[in-house]
Simulated scan of single mutants.
Amino acid sequence: MNSKRRVCHLYERGVVPYAIAHSWQQSLVAERRQNPDLEDVLILLEHPPIYTLGQGATLDFLKFDATQSEWEVVRVERGGEVTYHCPGQLVGYPILNLHTYQKDLHWYLRQLEEVLIRVLAAYGLQGERVPGLTGVWVEGKKLAAIGIKVSRWITMHGFALNVCPDMSGFERIVPCGIVDKPVGSMEQFIPGIQLEDVREQVAIAFAEVFNVHLVQVDLEV
């Protein structure tokens, strides 16, 4: 890794419609394809209730008919199976140029897991990896999901950490296609936890793990 601390722009918002955030990501990635010297970005936000499917995801893990449902379902270019977003879940979208870190997708996934493990540790929770799977678990419950897209070594999509969401939305799917491992939230272990506090911890851990200097900005795309 480059020993010099890069500047990474931190953009924080509350609840943002998925389509808008997706458009932000696409614009930021396109700009960095044209000019690889642009600084990195970390977007932290929440989404209204929505189910997202990875590029190659199967509909078999939906427990409802996506064509005749009140629930919004969208297929996007990330990897992985179906997942659920809703308020109370902290979503992170790093737009990083991996040329300046490591051109290694497995390394990048492990780094994202490390960020989340450190966040959980700040609250006294022991986050764990599961061999062969991507994400972070606490006492057998999956608290964080990760799904990425990397194009010309520029990243988009990212991670989702269940802080204090309404967990009932997960009952309508097989989250990430994993049948035998339940999902969970930080709130189940720490009643009353506040998403705003966790968002701050995520920023701190991200800066440590990726060795960047976060500068809070207003995103203009």
Rank of each mutant, 00 (worst) to 15 (best):
residue 45 L to T: 13
residue 71 W to A: 14
residue 90 L to V: 07
residue 181 K to A: 12
residue 179 V to S: 07
residue 62 L to Y: 05
residue 137 W to R: 08
residue 19 A to S: 05
residue 81 E to I: 08
residue 108 Y to R: 10
residue 75 R to I: 08
residue 153 W to N: 11
residue 190 I to V: 15
residue 219 L to P: 00
residue 181 K to N: 08
residue 69 S to D: 08
residue 61 F to E: 06
residue 29 V to T: 14
residue 102 Q to F: 10
residue 198 V to S: 01
residue 52 T to E: 02
residue 23 S to A: 07
residue 106 H to N: 12
residue 182 P to S: 10
residue 165 P to C: 04
residue 198 V to D: 00
residue 133 L to E: 15
residue 185 S to E: 12
residue 129 R to E: 07
residue 44 L to I: 14
residue 3 S to N: 03
residue 175 P to K: 07
residue 102 Q to S: 12
residue 140 G to Q: 12
residue 205 A to H: 03
residue 97 N to T: 00
residue 87 P to C: 05
residue 43 I to Y: 01
residue 104 D to I: 13
residue 49 P to M: 13
residue 61 F to S: 08
residue 172 R to H: 11
residue 178 I to H: 06
residue 101 Y to L: 14
residue 122 A to G: 05
residue 132 G to E: 14
residue 157 H to C: 08
residue 149 K to S: 15
residue 138 V to L: 10
residue 79 G to L: 07
residue 15 V to P: 03
residue 22 H to T: 03
residue 217 V to D: 05
residue 138 V to A: 05
residue 113 E to S: 12
residue 129 R to M: 09
residue 101 Y to R: 10
residue 92 G to E: 03
residue 134 T to A: 13
residue 82 V to H: 09
residue 195 L to V: 15
residue 209 V to Q: 06
residue 106 H to M: 09
residue 161 L to D: 07
residue 58 T to N: 02
residue 43 I to P: 00
residue 131 P to M: 12
residue 48 P to D: 01
residue 27 S to Q: 11
residue 14 G to R: 04
residue 137 W to Q: 08
residue 183 V to T: 13
residue 179 V to L: 10
residue 196 E to R: 15
residue 157 H to W: 05
residue 208 E to V: 08
residue 24 W to Y: 14
residue 21 A to P: 01
residue 172 R to S: 08
residue 68 Q to L: 07
residue 12 E to W: 01
residue 1 M to K: 12
residue 153 W to I: 14
residue 9 H to P: 00
residue 95 I to L: 04
residue 117 I to W: 01
residue 125 L to W: 10
residue 195 L to Q: 02
residue 98 L to D: 09
residue 129 R to W: 06
residue 64 F to H: 08
residue 130 V to R: 13
residue 210 F to L: 10
residue 99 H to Y: 02
residue 129 R to A: 11
residue 202 V to P: 01
residue 27 S to R: 04
residue 66 A to H: 12
residue 212 V to E: 09
residue 5 R to Q: 15
residue 167 M to K: 13
residue 103 K to F: 01
residue 209 V to S: 04
residue 150 V to T: 15
residue 125 L to E: 13
residue 149 K to R: 15
residue 167 M to W: 09
residue 90 L to P: 03
residue 168 S to T: 15
residue 44 L to A: 09
residue 79 G to F: 04
residue 65 D to H: 06
residue 3 S to T: 09
residue 139 E to R: 14
residue 121 A to S: 15
residue 179 V to R: 10
residue 169 G to L: 05
